[in-house]
Amino acid sequence: MTPHRATLLGIAPTLLIIGVLMVVPMVIMAAYSLMEANSFGGVLPHFSAEAYIKLLFDRDLDDSLAFDPSYMIILWRSLRIAGLATAITLCVGFPVAYFIATRPPEQRTLLIFLITIPFWTNLLIRTYSWVLILRDTGMINTVLQGSGLTDQPLKLLYTEGAILFGLVYTYAPFMVLPLYTSLEKLDFRLVEAARDLYCGPWGALRHVVLPLVMPGLVAGSILVFVPCLGAFVAPDLLGGGKELMISTLIQLQFTSSRNWPFGAALALVLLALVMLTLTVSAARQARAAAEGGH
């Protein structure tokens, strides 16, 4: 066997998996997005750009196109909520990761183990339990009303706040773990050096800690932002489908709306957004690496 053929054989399983599980579905989805919708679900094999037109325009009865921002609003809401969720997990996750990284090594292992415990239970069940806690007759409102702090139940469930809360709850570990990995490698004597050179605690954080843990911070942000952007469970269960996010919109196209091409087009738009996020951050990382030389 020639070395060339050996190489081909070696990478064959990888190519097979990527090809069958990723490229083929992507091609099918791209193809569906360019076809005509069958009103009973599925697609009709005619070329049509209707799905992409529908993203921005509403077709009136007389076939004229009117600009319709409603889908862009949903897209923007998804971006905004994912961005906010990322910012909040960062604010919550950083102190946690810092705390763990500054414990003695044997305690760190235990604390990291504790961080992973939520993964033992199904996401759907964990999110649904928040419904029970947040709803009008749930734990929080029962306690608030029982103690006389409020007369009416607070509107907690089916709000944007509930979606955000659910996303932060679900994805916080994905922020903590990469941040911890970076912080664990940080030489904390550098913090002392910064304090010695007239930095207060915040100055040391800003000028020394944050620049040095930037790789972990970026990795954590991507790991939170990307799944938040396409998150389905939290927006659907905690948002009640009123404040639509792109994932719920896509799901609707394949179910009750029966517009598969539009659903496929939306999925591709989501994919493009994710790719854009990753490309921008990869470019930034490459630039920082070129400047930093390490």
Partner: peptide, 11 residues
Amino acid sequence: TVFQHYSLFPH
């Protein structure tokens, strides 16, 4: 302070 392992800021 001049630290034992210098503790220069690597970035």
